[in-house]
């Protein structure tokens, strides 16, 4: 079905390209990047690499379930394998558009679940160069989007979208995204700071087809100013596995079911 749709999309492309608006591109990109499938599971290895080359590794299983349309509510569940001393730590997020997330964390050493405030979406995700927004997506309405050009980036024909935040609540003044015209995944993103200088670059380094969904399985975010880089690889990933609602509860935070986390 998906493949069929894709073919249709490709056929429509020349006409699409002429007519499509920046908002449409961003919406399609959001759907392709953050809302693909009904649910999603991945075993994620994150390498946090300092300027000097020292690495910290984070390994986790991430589960996501959509509630409603693209751009709607989502629930996330994360179970950490690495670093070793955080094994069994779990993290849960209820994501709502246009509203602060709800977040819970289970700290096994003191056997305690704590709610965590989520006021600052632009803070680092587990010490990486990705922000929480990078992981779960940013509300489309928070930015003004414009197509500034169309160009080929490597093999990919892309729209180049400039997204400027409407409020100064983030640490960049605007972002340029190279969004593939076929699968609408971002191939590259450039973040410009308040001085107008490029300081963060996102690249999608490997895109694979998983159950018919083009999925970024290797990506990296490089902070040019601090020299810090984060590499993320999905070593296993799957869509539409039928995650139950009950997973996203305090009980399972403390004792997650093996079938979901492995």
């Amino acid at each position: 079905m998906a493949r069929y749709l894709m073919v249709l999309l490709i056929m429509l492309l020349p006409i699409e390209a002429l007519a499509i608006s920046a908002e449409d591109v961003v919406k399609k990109s959001q759907a392709a990047f953050h809302y693909q499938g009904k649910d999603f599971k991945a075993r994620v290895v994150m390498k946090l690499i300092s300027k000097g080359g020292a690495e910290r590794v984070r390994e986790l299983t991430m589960l996501r379930k959509n509630y409603g349309e693209s751009g709607g509510d989502q629930k996330f569940f994360m179970y950490f394998f690495q670093p070793a001393d955080v094994k069994d730590m779990t993290f849960m997020v209820y994501k709502y558009p246009a509203k602060d997330d709800d977040r819970w964390l289970f700290v096994p050493a003191i056997n305690m679940v704590r709610r965590i405030a989520a006021q600052d979406k632009t803070s680092s995700f587990v010490g990486s160069d990705f922000t929480y927004e990078d992981v779960s997506g940013r509300d489309i309405e928070d930015d003004t989007h414009t197509i500034i050009k169309e160009e080929k980036l490597g093999e990919n024909d892309c729209y180049v979208i400039k997204s400027a935040p409407k409020r100064g609540d983030v640490d960049y003044s605007y972002k340029l995204s190279w969004i593939d015209k076929i699968h609408f995944l971002p191939i590259k993103e450039e973040y410009y700071d308040r001085k107008g200088e490029l300081y963060k670059v996102f690249t999608a380094d490997e895109i694979k087809d998983v159950k018919g969904f083009p999925t970024i399985t290797k990506r990296q975010m490089k902070n040019l100013q601090s020299g810090h880089t984060t590499e993320v690889a999905y070593i296993k990933s799957d869509y539409n596995i039928g995650i139950e609602d009950s997973l996203f509860s305090e009980r399972f935070l403390k004792q997650p079911l093996k079938k979901w986390i492995e």
Partner: peptide, 15 residues
């Protein structure tokens, strides 16, 4: 506990 506290801290603090 030390490891988990620091991890928790790093989940939201500046790198």
């Amino acid at each position: 506990a030390v490891g988990q506290y620091l991890f928790l801290f790093s989940m939201s603090a500046k790198p």
